[in-house]
Simulated assay, not measured.
Amino acid sequence: MAKQTNKPSKSAAVTKMLSRANGATVGEIVKSTGWKEHSCRAFLTGIRKTSKLLKEQRPDGKTAYRIGAAEPGALD
């Protein structure tokens, strides 16, 4: 019998990424989870139903998503 590890779920890992100060882009979520882009966007929609999800423009022009309170300059 294979030893079971306590690896965090992909959704928990994405939630942790979204909780970072700079959030996460869809591309970062795809790379981390192996999900397709449409699956990442569907996950973000689910997060919107339970938390405040902020959409922010990074200096490099990429769009990042972050869980948290609104700050000046944040896009809703």
Results as ranks from 00 to 15, higher is better:
residue 64 A to S: 15
residue 24 A to F: 11
residue 32 S to R: 06
residue 31 K to A: 15
residue 42 A to L: 08
residue 27 G to P: 10
residue 39 S to V: 08
residue 9 S to I: 05
residue 67 I to A: 05
residue 32 S to M: 09
residue 46 G to W: 03
residue 58 R to H: 13
residue 20 R to Q: 13
residue 37 E to K: 05
residue 6 N to Y: 12
residue 66 R to C: 05
residue 16 K to C: 06
residue 6 N to G: 11
residue 70 A to R: 10
residue 7 K to V: 15
residue 22 N to S: 14
residue 67 I to Q: 09
residue 33 T to F: 00
residue 71 E to P: 00
residue 29 I to P: 01
residue 46 G to D: 04
residue 7 K to W: 10
residue 59 P to T: 11
residue 56 E to I: 14
residue 69 A to W: 11
residue 15 T to N: 00
residue 71 E to W: 13
residue 39 S to H: 14
residue 67 I to D: 03
residue 56 E to L: 10
residue 45 T to M: 10
residue 21 A to K: 15
residue 13 A to R: 14
residue 41 R to M: 10
residue 38 H to E: 11
residue 11 S to T: 14
residue 12 A to P: 02
residue 29 I to Y: 00
residue 16 K to Y: 01
residue 30 V to R: 02
residue 18 L to G: 07
residue 67 I to P: 01
residue 56 E to V: 12
residue 63 T to D: 02
residue 36 K to G: 03
residue 29 I to E: 00
residue 21 A to P: 14
residue 68 G to W: 06
residue 29 I to N: 00
residue 38 H to N: 09
residue 18 L to S: 07
residue 9 S to W: 07
residue 33 T to D: 00
residue 45 T to W: 07
residue 33 T to C: 04
residue 51 S to G: 08
residue 30 V to G: 03
residue 46 G to Q: 13
residue 54 L to N: 11
residue 25 T to C: 06
residue 56 E to D: 11
residue 29 I to D: 01
residue 20 R to N: 12
residue 19 S to F: 09
residue 49 K to N: 05
residue 69 A to P: 04
residue 39 S to C: 05
residue 51 S to E: 14
residue 40 C to L: 03
residue 18 L to A: 06
residue 53 L to N: 04
residue 32 S to P: 02
residue 19 S to V: 11
residue 59 P to C: 02
residue 23 G to M: 03
residue 15 T to G: 06
residue 44 L to A: 00
residue 52 K to T: 15
residue 39 S to T: 13
residue 41 R to W: 12
residue 28 E to R: 06
residue 8 P to N: 06
residue 65 Y to C: 01
residue 43 F to T: 03
residue 34 G to C: 01
residue 30 V to Q: 02
residue 26 V to I: 15
residue 13 A to K: 15
residue 14 V to I: 07
residue 15 T to H: 08
residue 30 V to C: 05
residue 24 A to I: 12
residue 42 A to K: 15
residue 54 L to Q: 15
residue 63 T to A: 04
residue 6 N to T: 14
residue 8 P to H: 04
residue 50 T to V: 05
residue 67 I to Y: 05
residue 30 V to K: 05
residue 35 W to P: 00
residue 28 E to K: 00
residue 27 G to R: 11
residue 67 I to R: 14
residue 44 L to R: 04
residue 24 A to D: 08
residue 14 V to W: 00
residue 52 K to D: 07
residue 11 S to F: 08
residue 43 F to C: 01
residue 47 I to W: 02
residue 40 C to Y: 00
residue 17 M to G: 10
residue 57 Q to H: 14
residue 22 N to E: 13
residue 7 K to I: 12
residue 25 T to Q: 09
residue 66 R to K: 07
residue 30 V to D: 02
residue 58 R to V: 04
residue 33 T to Q: 02
residue 42 A to S: 12
